[in-house]
Design a binder for these strands. Structure first.
Length: 941
RNA sequence: GCUCAAGUGGCGGAAUUGGUAGACGCGCUGGAUUCAAAAUCCAGUUUCUUCGGAAGUGUGGGUUCGAUUCCCACCUUGAGUACCA
């Protein structure tokens, strides 16, 4: 019987689907284990061989855990809201829901043929109203919450209203926009409802505010910081400009400290944690008040600066404000006004990208105003400079040129004095910023102190004077939550007199309306502005036509939609109980499944999805919705599988192609050729290439050694680079089991590695050998023979290695182990059922179809997936004696057979008495003999 | 610039607490089988070599009887981040 992989795989995929083999139950005696993949966005291009890499790894782990007796939750779904479907809709008029449904169908077919053990009964789609109902519900919860910094926890906004009624906001320590506005209980109670609402808006965890946002004109929408790469949009690479807009924001900054602390409790890679730490960007220092001396203004204004080096306060020789700082226009003297205005204007004109591109150029202008030093009372000139960012800290710095590189460069450039406040340090060439080696001098009461001491002392002194305080700053900005797009979650929000109101949660979901056009309206409103039934009737509690808006009972609805990361920030909880109509998931389900034990996905989500989802989880935890505040105990980033692109070289200006070796230094244009036209020797199928596109039809090809050789390069797999390898082809040529094994065999899971289809023959022939070990022309050839010592040794070596490998996620080396084992067993002519059966269980997570087939041929009725993992017995590996390498001064000379149970001393004695040893020593006495038990004997002399 | 990760044959990679470097696979070479090819099987495959050996894990040092593994400096590549005070 031949190994007919296509039939076998189809048969078992059907069996698994019909028998719901991998359906997880929510109550079980078994311990739980939750293995999660980052769910895909179903793009129109379908899957290429790079996509399943992480899914195969998680599937192996999930299957392994089932063999170990765990109740495994291994779900899959789709992150199905997103830009490509919308842009396709704009071009073709096809509704994104239809495109999305078609793409999901393709994805499902492709995923199914690889044989994943997903529990599809729990599938979620973020664009499904039954799902986004809960996205909207969470939004409402965020709106109805505020963050108390004293308890580091989110509370109901009603509690805050109660506090305002009783004592105003004087004692409230909360995250909010304008901490400055203090009011009493009387003042609060006297306010109009609108005034109260606009104050509350400043405290809510999601809030509407006019903020400076990243506007991408080409995409017609705003983008979050993590959606911008090198100053251009991540999708499409379009320019991005700063613009003030009224937008929904998420107060993720409230959770900055907890997001940072939480990293200590989870098993994620160090590089990923480091990315998140950098993104959160905590810095500890002080906020210091400076008074401005000015003839122009009667009442001298104050401004605050943030510094991480309050110990260097006596080294301040100037102050620098961001050009956008609100004080600039107030304090500038008439003589300096012209220069300052020109500078502010010039800075405003520069795009984000320009400003990023040249960080070397030093520019700035003196305002003519001075500040008073809090200790020395000396006058310090106030400058403006674009190296100070309006968005960080207070938008103003105290410049200490001797201790900070940028301040130093600025001072040198404008010839500002650079006082030295460090003991024994030469600052004539550069600033000195080594905190550890700092000893303060020329600084009054700080003299002789180290960085640590001086910092503490300076902050204390400032606090005593009421001139400053210790302060921690975070780089993490609140996340803009509005998108001017169609294909996203609608907000459950309507407006009364311009103030946002939440629709009662019991009326959710608010379904996405139909629109004529997916483009923004002519007046520049988002696409939802094209909807006709998009107003809220507060009496009927239902959607009604816009024409009926009377601002009495019928009000306009929010036109923006939520960003892509909304739906993906809690889906892992929804899988626990996806059908639930009353809650995200029932309490029982959440208490049972708790959190994700293993999460596998790409590292490109480090500062996007993986940060936002942690934020929402912490919020839901505060509200008592979820039982844990970190949702993923362990996370692994799978590396990317890269494509091997092929290039042809067209002589510039001619339709003539040179073979790679003939190009030399000639002027040629490099063109991607489809990799399917190229064989394993890098030779191009010229006919296929000519027929590919009409422009190549009459091309001339200059060959070398009778063939056209292409150039090769490893790049990201992408349609536009014509280097995509489709898993469908691999599955039909070699089978899903070969694909699974090969993807693992390519290299370490977390590494980037190029795909090369030619190599798959290795793992494919392993499967054929495995088949031949069990089956010959007469069918199954397994016997009840008692296993030999060698048989048992091979088996238990394999059990040990494979188990260790899976637990360390070194799937690549287990594939090698399987190959070695099958070769050994073949050489041993092993037909013993007692060996072959457990071997199948070991292989089944990797190559489940062939394992399932042989398992059933062995007479089992139940699926192999529930068979227990074989137990390792070390006694089969222990030999009575071992070949010890004997070395002299570290150089290996010969080996000696010695019993394993010999003591160190006995080994030493035996080795020294050995004939060969005596020969080597030639009468000399060795200094030392080192015995590493079981490994090596080293004679030093 | 800063942070992190990584550098081993023609290629992907192995060597899990320091102990015979190059497992396993691809590719290549030779052979068997075949009319022939595919498939399959067997042998060989780090480099140099005077065939005794010698060198060898990015480079240069160090610790050690012994280093791909640990320490220091440097080089290269990749990823992230970017005037964060």
């Amino acid at each position: 019987m031949k190994y007919n992989f296509n039939d076998i795989e189809a048969k078992w995929q059907k069996y698994w689907a019909e028998n719901q083999t991998f359906k997880a139950i929510n109550n079980s005696e078994k311990p739980k284990y939750y293995v999660l993949d980052m769910f895909p966005y179903p793009s129109g291009a379908g899957l290429h061989v790079g996509h399943p890499l992480g899914y195969i790894a998680s599937d192996i782990y999930a299957r392994y855990k089932r063999h170990q007796g765990f109740n495994v939750l291994h779900p899959q779904g789709y992150d199905s809201f997103g830009l490509p479907a919308e842009q396709y809709a704009i071009q073709t008029g096809q509704h994104p829901a239809i495109t999305t449904a078609e793409n999901i169908k393709t994805y499902r077919r492709q995923l199914d043929q690889i044989g994943f053990s997903f529990d599809w009964s729990r599938e979620v789609r973020t664009s499904d109203p039954n799902y986004y109902k809960w996205t909207q519900w969470i939004f409402i919860q965020l709106f109805n919450s505020w963050y108390c910094k004293n308890h580091e926890k989110a509370y109901d906004i009603k509690d805050l209203v109660e506090l305002f009624k009783e004592e105003g906001n004087i004692n409230i320590n909360a995250e909010c926009q304008n901490v400055g506005d203090i009011f009493t209980a009387e003042e609060w109670n006297a306010m109009s409802s609108e005034a109260q609402q606009s104050i509350l808006l400043q405290y809510r965890l999601t809030y509407l505010a006019e903020t400076e946002v990243n506007w991408c004109p080409a995409l017609g929408t705003v983008l979050a910081n993590d959606e911008i790469v090198n100053g251009v949009s991540e999708r499409g690479g379009h320019p991005v400009i700063r613009k003030k807009m009224t937008q929904w924001s998420m107060r993720i900054s409230a959770y900055a400290e907890r997001l940072l602390q939480g990293l200590e409790t989870i098993d994620w890679t160090d590089s990923l944690k480091e990315s998140q730490r950098n993104w959160i960007g905590k810095s500890v220092g002080a906020q210091v008040k400076f008074k401005v001396v000015s003839n122009e203004v009667k009442e001298a204004p104050e401004f605050e600066v943030f510094t991480t080096r309050p110990d260097t306060i006596f080294g301040v020789s100037f102050m620098t404000l961001a050009p956008e700082h609100e004080l600039v226009s107030q304090i500038t003297t008439p003589e300096q006004k012209e220069d300052v205005d020109a500078y502010v204007l010039a800075t405003a004109k520069r795009s984000e990208r320009d400003r990023m591109a040249d960080v070397k150029t030093i520019s700035g202008v003196f305002t003519g105003a001075y500040a008073i030093h809090p200790f020395t009372k000396k006058l310090i000139p106030i400058w403006i400079g674009d190296y100070v960012l309006a968005g960080y800290g207070t938008g103003a710095v105290m410049s200490v040129p001797c201790g900070d590189e940028r301040d130093y460069a600025f001072a040198k450039h404008f010839d500002i004095p650079i006082p030295n406040i460090f003991e024994g340090v030469d600052i004539s060439e550069e600033a000195f910023s080594d905190k550890e080696k700092t000893v303060i001098a020329n600084s009054d009461f700080l003299n002789g102190m180290t960085y640590k001491k001086a910092t503490k002392r300076a902050i204390y002194a400032l606090e005593q004077m009421g001139q400053g305080e210790g302060k921690t700053n975070y780089r993490l900005r609140d996340a803009v939550f509005s998108r001017q797009r169609y294909w996203g979650e609608p907000f459950p929000v309507y407006y009364v007199n311009g103030m946002p109101q939440m629709i009662d949660a019991k009326h959710l979901p608010i379904k996405l309306p139909e629109v004529e056009k997916y483009l923004p309206t002519e007046t520049g409103e988002p696409p939802l502005g094209n909807a006709t039934v998009w107003a809220w009737d507060t009496e009927k509690n239902d959607l009604v036509s816009n024409d009926l808006i009377d601002n009495e009972t019928i009000h306009p609805l929010e036109l923006n939609t939520m960003p892509g990361w909304a739906g993906s920030s809690f889906y892992f909880n929804r899988y626990m109980d996806p059908e639930n109509q009353n809650e995200i998931a029932s309490k029982e389900a959440m208490d049972y499944w708790q959190d994700v034990d293993l999460y596998i996905g790409g590292s490109e989500h480090a500062t996007g999805h993986l940060l936002y989802s942690r934020f929402w989880q912490k919020f839901l935890f505060d509200k008592g919705v979820v039982p844990v505040d970190e949702y993923a105990k362990k996370l692994i980033n799978q590396g990317m599988i890269l494509g091997t692109s092929a290039f042809v070289y067209r002589v510039e200006g001619e339709n003539k192609f040179l073979s790679k070796g003939l190009v030399l230094d000639k002027k040629v244009q490099e063109i991607h050729a489809d990799v399917s036209f190229v064989n394993s020797s890098d030779e191009l199928d010229i006919e296929a290439f000519k027929n590919w596109r009409p422009e190549f039809k009459d091309a001339e090809f200059i060959l070398e050694d009778g063939a056209y050789k292409v150039g090769r390069d490893v790049e990201k797999m992408s349609k536009s680079k014509y280097n995509v390898v489709n898993p469908d082809d691999i599955v039909s040529d070699y089978g899903a089991d070969s694909l699974r094994l090969y993807e693992m065999f390519l290299g370490p899971l977390e590494q980037y590695k190029p795909w090369n289809t030619a190599g798959i023959t290795g793992v494919h022939s392993f499967l054929k050998k495995l088949w031949k070990l069990y089956v010959d022309n007469n069918g199954l050839k397994v016997t009840d023979a008692t296993p030999t010592k060698d048989n048992l040794k091979t088996l238990h070596k394999t059990i040990k290695k494979v188990q260790d490998d899976i637990e360390n996620f070194s799937f690549n080396t287990s594939v090698s182990t399987f190959m070695i084992s099958v070769n050994e067993l073949t050489a041993q002519k092993c037909t013993s059922k007692d060996i072959l059966e457990p071997l199948l269980v070991l292989i089944s997570p990797y190559a489940p179809h062939i394992a399932e087939e042989l398992w059933s041929q062995l007479g089992h009725n139940a699926s192999i997936s529930t068979a227990p993992f074989p137990e390792f017995d070390a006694s089969h590996l222990v030999e009575s004696s071992k070949n010890y390498p004997i070395s002299f001064n570290g150089k290996m000379r010969f080996t000696m057979e010695l019993p394993l149970d010999m003591s160190k001393d006995a080994i030493e004695k035996a080795v020294l008495e050995n004939e060969k040893t005596q020969e080597q020593l030639a009468g000399r006495t060795p200094k030392k003999v080192i015995v590493v038990p079981g490994k090596i004997v080293n004679i030093v002399g």
